[in-house]
Amino acid sequence: GACRVSMSMREIRAGFTAIKTNIQSRDPIRTLSILSHPHSLHKVKSSDRCCITYQLFTFYVDKVFKHCRTEDLFVNRKISSIANSFLSTRRKLGQCREHNNCVCGEESTEKFKQILANYEGLNVTSAAMKSLGELDILLDWMEKSR
C-alpha cells in the first residue's frame, strides 16, 4: 500500500559509506547473501514494498545493529547514527501500518522468511556483520523504488 515517510537517506548513506569497507572486510563469506540471494529485493511487487521495508527495518533494529559493536570507536559512532536513524524511520513506518497502508502479501512474507533463514544460517556476529555490510543493497532498492 502507499506509505510516504520522510527519512534522512543522505545521512544514512554517508554513515554507511564511511564504514562500508571496514564492515565488509569483516565478512569473509562471498558465497552467501542475507538480502539478495536466492531472491532479490528488486523482484518484490510494489504493493508489498511498504510491508517488506517495515519488516527489514525491524530486522535491522531488533537483530543486527546490537551485534555489530567493534573495537573501532569511529565505526561504533557511525553504527549508532545509522541505528538511531533506522529507529526513527521504523517508528514512522509503524504509523503507516496502524492506518492499514502497509499490508503484507504472501510474496513479501515468503521473501522475509528467506532473509531470516539466511540470517539464522550463520552465527550471530557473522550474520549481523554480513547484514550490516549489505545495507547498501537495502538502500539501493529503497531509492530505486521510491
Binding site: S8, V61, D62, F65, K66, L73, S80, S81, A83, L87
Partner: peptide, 29 residues
C-alpha cells in the same frame, strides 16, 4: 536495544575545552 550503552566521542576525549561539537553524532531525529 543496547543495554543503555554510551558511546565516546573521540574528538572530545581528554580535551581541555569546555565545549564539544555533537553535530556528526546527533544525526537522527
Amino acid at each position: 536495544y543496547a543495554n543503555g550503552s554510551w558511546i565516546p566521542i573521540s574528538e572530545c576525549s581528554l580535551t581541555t575545552a569546555t565545549i564539544c561539537n555533537l553535530t556528526e553524532d546527533i544525526s537522527a531525529s
